[in-house]
């Protein structure tokens, strides 16, 4: 089977030290993949480098056997929530409709069909009733759901999500994970930057352990081990103890 995302020898350096160093990994199709690592491990940077949002010093990235091109529209992206201006004059439905922009193409407006589809995506995340709300009037969890709906509206094959669970309530977290599983069942591949070690085993089929270098990647069962966590988190004891607990729970 063809692997949808293949990264070879990816190195990114902002200044003197590389932020990502010689990363190699592949992810299989139709899985939920967790990107796990401590703060400053380069998790967000990895996603941005794959999507070509920041320049890479070296390496190759292939999405479905081709170098990544945005216009192929196979990729959906959910950036970290902090990156937008919540006072922007726009409502929930309008934000989701932005997910259609890639499909609509230059010089055209999204039409009735796009609007209906956007509303359908909002409904899937349980936000249809809030379609007309200005986005600053939504709670953190609701905002995150709107952004997920926008990713759905992109109708991609591979999704990259940057910390979707940060600052959301338990109900939203549940809703998000249900949605991710639904995407998986449709054969989509979803990569999620995640930092709560407790839920890794429950949520993800595959993991990529990252700390500047790619420590390990593979099925959660065989990869999310005490030894690998030790290597990823190094001397950070608090994390380590938590990891131990989780490893022992097995």
């Amino acid at each position: 089977m063809m692997n949808p995302v293949v990264v070879k020898g990816l190195t990114v350096a902002y200044q003197e030290k590389p932020v990502l160093k010689d990363i190699n990994f592949e992810v299989p199709e139709g899985k939920l993949i967790g990107i796990i690592g401590p703060n400053g491990a380069g998790k967000s940077t990895l996603i941005k480098a794959i999507l070509g949002l920041i320049p890479k010093a070296a390496g190759q990235i292939q999405i479905y056997n081709k170098p990544y091109r945005a216009k192929d529209r196979v990729v959906g992206y959910v950036p970290q929530r902090g990156s937008v201006d919540w006072d922007f004059p726009t409502n929930a439905l309008d934000v989701v409709l932005m997910g259609r922009y890639g499909h609509v193409g230059w010089f055209k407006r999204p039409g009735k069909k796009d609007e209906a589809f956007a509303l359908e995506c909002l409904r899937k995340v349980g936000m249809a009733d809030f379609a007309d709300r200005q986005i600053s009037q939504l709670s953190g969890g609701q905002q995150q759901r709107v952004f997920l709906a926008r990713a759905l509206a992109q109708e991609a094959k591979v999704y990259f999500m940057d910390e979707p669970f940060v600052g959301v309530d338990a109900a939203t977290e549940r809703a998000i994970i249900d949605l991710l599983n639904e995407l998986k069942e449709q054969g989509k591949t979803v990569l999620v930057v995640h930092h709560d070690l407790q839920t890794v085993k429950e949520y993800f089929d595959h993991v990529l352990l990252l700390n500047v270098e790619a420590i390990a990647s593979g099925p959660t069962e065989s990869t999310f081990t005490m030894e690998n966590l030790h290597q990823t988190y190094g001397g950070k004891l608090a994390f380590l103890e938590k990891g131990q607990m989780i490893a022992e729970q097995k």
Partner: peptide, 10 residues
């Protein structure tokens, strides 16, 4: 100088 160093180390 630095880029050369990183590449050499790699």
């Amino acid at each position: 100088i630095n880029h050369k160093k990183i590449n050499r180390e790699l």
